[in-house]
């Protein structure tokens, strides 16, 4: 079973609603991960603000962090770096995983494109 690991910047929550401004890309990505799980992918998600141990004990993530907070989010597929500094969209994830059934995705491309450009050093502060 393929395993997807997501290392998020310090977020208060997976959709970012606690921040001063809600980023719809975060909600879309969270939904995409659910979709992957429904297709048999194991998803593990770590948030710098809440699961710092996962960052501190992973040399590859630590190396990315040394380059700057803007290297987050980092997405690994079975240990291989899939994306860094941006969330991949559902199509990209599906392609990498060899999933052909993207029919469930009625996600307009724009919804996830935004995710490709998180502001440098962005961390949604929780309330």
């Amino acid at each position: 079973m393929p395993k997807l690991e997501v290392f998020d910047p310090a977020l208060c929550c997976s959709t970012g609603v606690c921040g001063v401004d809600v980023d719809p890309a975060l909600a879309q990505f969270a939904a995409d991960l659910k979709w992957l799980e429904a297709h048999g992918v194991t998803v593990e998600r770590y948030n710098l603000g809440q699961n710092p141990a996962a960052f501190a004990t992973n040399p590859r993530v630590l190396a990315l962090l040394q380059q700057g907070n803007d290297r987050l989010p980092a997405v690994f597929l079975d240990g291989e770096l899939l994306a860094s500094g941006a969330y991949p969209d559902r199509h990209a994830l599906a392609a990498k995983l060899g999933l052909t059934d993207v029919s469930a995705t009625d996600a307009p491309a724009s919804g996830t494109c935004c995710a490709a450009q998180p502001a440098a050093g962005q961390g949604k502060s929780c309330c």
């Binding site: 929550c13 959709t15 809600v22 719809p24 969270a30 939904a31 659910k34 995705t105 996600a107």
Partner: peptide, 25 residues
């Protein structure tokens, strides 16, 4: 923010908006 999201993404956003933090904001 929810207008371009898939229905399940919108549902997740809505669920998270129930957080007690939201009132403070």
């Amino acid at each position: 923010k929810g207008k371009d999201l898939t229905p399940e993404a919108r549902a997740m956003l809505e669920e998270d908006l129930h957080s007690p933090c939201t009132e403070e904001i």
